[in-house]
Design a protein around this nucleic acid. Structure first.
Length: 478
RNA sequence: GCUCCCAUCGUCCAGCGGCCUAGGACUCCGCCCUUUCAAGGCGGCAACGCGGGUUCGAAUCCCGUUGGGAGCACCA
């Protein structure tokens, strides 16, 4: 979810500023994992309706390049950096580094000690003769590294706290530490909005940009903005490389893109202090990266649903009906190819469903009673055991008699007839009187409005269900 | 351990020195409306982690502290 939100903010930023937009998941190994993560990201963005301008080949930005011309380009740039003294050959093994740290009474976790910076040509030759192949490390600057982060303001890493990073492996393979800034430079990336986990690697990237600038590969560097995490329950990071599992889980529950987008944007950003429902256009219109909060935000399903619900209600009914359809099919309420009459029924009930659901998957249980065939209809046990008792017998009798005598089967008449028969004549409180009727007709204690439901269900089916319920109540009495 | 980030109701956001006896939203709880459930309306519970400064005045600035998080590979 964090990845998706990062993508959303990138998108909103680019659209707001009229710039072009590139998403990258970076992986020099082009592993299956990264390919899947990348595909999942793109699929998610497509579903959300977020477009982008261009992107690297599927499979990560760097894997393919290594085997192609781009690989030579990295090698060439590395060579030039080496010749300029920005990089140096380092022969120390991790074991040797740790050993030196320990010998100096330091914590080995401090990492590389920049030891090979000071090797003489003579020493290097000797190490080479031992058959060692050097990695290439970047010489970090001796002064503090400071930048103005788009979301966090000024951030400073003290000189000497970031060890010289490896940019090229012993076997000549370029590492992410090299390829990322080089690609940004070559793609003319102006703004980098990414997760805060990349924050600690920013100083060395900035150092590299400076070196690249000095050797004339690029001028300047992008602006950085490090977005906070989205957490789940507890305070742990939510879904690292797998946006799909979460995003599509929410989609399957019946979030609509408008709702999820709105909620996600709200996580760490607000459009105004008195409003939290807005459209995607409004988001783009108002988006300001500098107003994004630096605190980690917890994904609150309840609030997400509430936002989704208001977007659901804002849909026009035809649109809502169409979007609800796949969920009803998935729930087995409707056939994959519903009949015209079923569709007509659905259109009739849709407005009442629309203001009752927070996610689309809730629609199924609400409308199921309209689509089951009569023989298969059976009220839910939990509802009927409470409502269809012997007490309900006189009520059901009166209702059936009154409804049978009715001429026009319309909501208003049904309401008047039942009120007259049950409330006026039998003296039941409305609240009590209509529960058994509701359970008899819809099978549940919670349903769309009763009289409308009965009209849509039709006279015969409604009466048949009431008679069936009466039987049950009679049995309960016996 | 080292470095860096973060710190306002349970949650998200507002607040960028006086408008704050801290505002909105979600959740929760009442009440109204009501044939159920919703929706809608009204109301309520609930927070500036702590300690020092700076200032006439601090939620807002500074320092410290505590707490949380992340990163520390010849991964990305």
């Amino acid at each position: 979810m964090g990845l998706i939100r990062t993508a959303l903010f990138n998108w909103a930023f680019a659209r707001h500023n009229g710039g072009s937009l590139v998403f990258r998941i970076e992986d020099t190994d082009a592993s299956r994992d990264s390919e899947q993560a990348y595909q999942a990201l793109l699929d998610g963005l497509r579903w959300l309706g977020l477009d982008w301008d261009e992107g690297p080949e599927v499979g990560g930005a760097y894997g393919p390049y290594r085997q192609s011309e781009r690989g030579h380009l990295y090698a060439d740039i590395a060579k030039r950096l080496l010749e300029a003294g920005e990089l140096y050959e380092a022969y120390s093994t991790p074991e040797e580094v740790a050993e030196r740290r320990r010998a100096a009474g330091q914590d080995p976790q401090l990492g590389y000690d920049n030891h090979d910076r000071y090797l003489t040509e003579q020493q290097r030759a000797e190490l080479r003769e031992q058959g060692r192949t050097p990695v290439l490390r970047l010489r970090m600057p001796d002064e503090d590294v400071t930048w103005h982060d788009l979301v966090r303001g000024e951030i400073t890493f003290q000189a000497g706290t970031v060890p010289d990073p490896v940019l090229v492996r012993g076997n000549g393979d370029p590492l992410y530490t090299l390829t990322n800034p080089v690609d940004d430079a070559l793609m003319d990336i102006t703004h980098v909005l990414r997760g805060e986990d990349l924050l600690p690697s920013t100083p060395r990237q900035i150092a590299l940009y400076r070196a690249l600038t000095r050797i004339g590969v690029t001028t300047g560097r992008p602006e950085f903005g490090h977005l906070p995490y989205v957490t789940g329950e507890g305070n742990k990071k939510l879904s690292k490389r797998d946006p799909q599992s979460n995003l599509f889980h929410h989609r399957d529950r019946g979030f609509i893109p408008e709702g999820l987008l709105n909620y996600l944007a709200l996580l760490g950003w607000s459009i105004a202090d008195d409003r939290d429902v807005f459209t995607v256009d409004e988001l783009v219109q108002a988006f300001d990266i500098r107003k994004v909060s630096a605190n980690p935000a917890r994904f609150d399903v309840k609030k997400a649903e509430a936002i989704n619900a208001t977007h659901l209600r804002a849909l026009d009914v035809a649109d809502f009906t169409e979007r609800m359809l796949p969920y009803l099919i998935a729930a087995g309420v409707l056939d994959p190819y519903p009949s015209d009459s079923d569709l007509e029924t659905l259109r009739a009930i849709a407005p009442m469903v629309q203001e009752r659901v927070t996610v689309l998957s809730e629609a199924g249980p609400l409308v199921r009673f309209l689509f089951v065939d009569e023989a298969g209809f059976e009220p839910e046990e939990s509802a009927s055991s409470k409502a269809l008792t012997s007490d309900a017998l006189p009520l059901l009798d009166a209702a059936i008699a009154a409804l049978e005598a009715m001429s026009a089967w319309r909501t208003e008449e049904i309401e008047n007839t039942l009120k007259d028969a049950l409330v006026e004549r039998l003296g039941w409180r409305p609240r009590k009187a209509f529960t058994p009727i509701r359970v008899a007709v819809t099978g549940r204690t919670v349903s769309p409005p009763l009289f409308e439901s009965m009209e849509i269900l039709g006279r015969e089916r409604s009466l048949a269900r009431l008679r069936k319920a009466r039987e049950r109540a009679a049995n309960a009495a016996a």
